[in-house]
């Protein structure tokens, strides 16, 4: 920076600056190190969870290869496929649900509006697991807990209640000036046209944000998946698979593969996250568009 060179900083200020950067560097190391370590582990040649050295002794791609070829013990490719299917369906339904609810609450005025928001707030206070057990029983009564129907069960579980998570999207819609809607209405648009042709394009960041979060959800949840899949190894999702790799009976053989799996699913999530970081910030601070 030319400016800083010209205006010579006082020694005290330079010291603080140095300390701040040092602090940031130390913190960054603390935060990055575990991730770095996982990546290293995923390339580690020697198996087992507990080693005597911090850095691997040998490097190999075998962990990745095993992850995607070994179908006998833990069928990771199958789990990956399951999760992908579930995630795509979920993404579709959840996005529709969240945006519909958020738009209705933000833009339309109807009698049920306030009660709905209050109900949503109250439901949000119940521990998620309270409903989980009962959801399982309901799915069971609907015959969705056996065989490949489990997939449908999981899709339902992941997307059915997303209508309660409208807050961020609604907050964003609220910042779009109402007069834009009114102008569209005067121009002859129906509410549906306002929704699809005006609000959706304007709310692109939040649409992307919603799509991403709902796509990611099935990849990182393992509790619902575990309760609903039970012992149906055929229908396991990636999360359960990874969880299983760390159980006593598998951990020695599979620990490095676990690291490889973790890296594999982290990459797309990392890309998505870095891309949507800005929407995340905007969603929180409520950027006014217009």
């Amino acid at each position: 920076m030319e400016d800083t060179k010209r205006n010579k900083l006082s020694p005290r200020k330079r010291l603080t600056n140095f300390l701040v950067h040092l602090l940031l560097a130390v913190l960054a190391v603390i935060w990055v190190l575990p991730i770095f370590w996982i990546i290293l582990t995923s390339f580690r040649a020697e198996p087992g969870a507990y080693t005597n050295t911090f850095l691997p002794q040998g490097y190999t791609l075998a962990n990745y290869i095993k992850l995607f070829t070994d179908r006998n013990v833990l069928n990771f490719p199958k789990m990956f496929k399951n999760t992908l299917i579930i995630a795509i369906c979920c993404c579709f339904f959840s996005t529709f649900f969240v945006l519909s609810v958020a738009y209705s609450l933000s833009r339309m005025r109807f009698k049920f509006r306030k009660p709905y928001m209050n109900i949503a707030m109250i439901l949000g206070l119940f521990p998620g697991f309270m409903a989980m057990i009962a959801q399982y029983f309901i799915l069971k009564a609907m015959g969705l807990t056996e065989g490949s129907a489990i997939r449908i069960g999981l899709i339902i579980v992941y997307s059915a209640c997303t209508g309660l998570g409208f807050q961020i999207a609604k907050g964003f819609f609220d910042t779009i000036p109402r007069s834009i809607d009114e102008a569209a209405v005067m121009d002859g648009a129906t509410q549906w046209q306002v929704f699809t042709r005006i609000t959706m394009p304007l709310a692109k960041p939040i649409v992307i944000y919603t799509v991403m979060t709902s796509f990611i959800a099935p990849w990182v949840d393992f509790i619902f998946a575990k309760v609903i899949c039970r012992a149906n190894a055929d229908q396991f999702t990636v999360a359960i698979g990874l969880w299983n790799m760390l159980q006593k009976e598998y951990i020695y053989q599979w620990y490095t593969c676990f690291a490889a799996g973790a890296v594999i699913i982290s990459i797309p999530i990392a890309i998505l996250f870095i891309y949507m970081q800005r929407f995340y910030v905007e969603g929180m601070s409520g950027a006014v568009k217009g």
């Binding site: 834009i180 009114e182 102008a183 209405v185 121009d187 568009k289 217009g290």
Partner: peptide, 18 residues
């Protein structure tokens, strides 16, 4: 409103930004 054959200009322009 759309069937009244009326047009309106708003204070904050209300143009469609996209």
């Amino acid at each position: 409103p759309r069937d009244r054959d009326i047009a309106m200009v708003f204070q904050n322009y209300a143009l469609y930004p996209h």
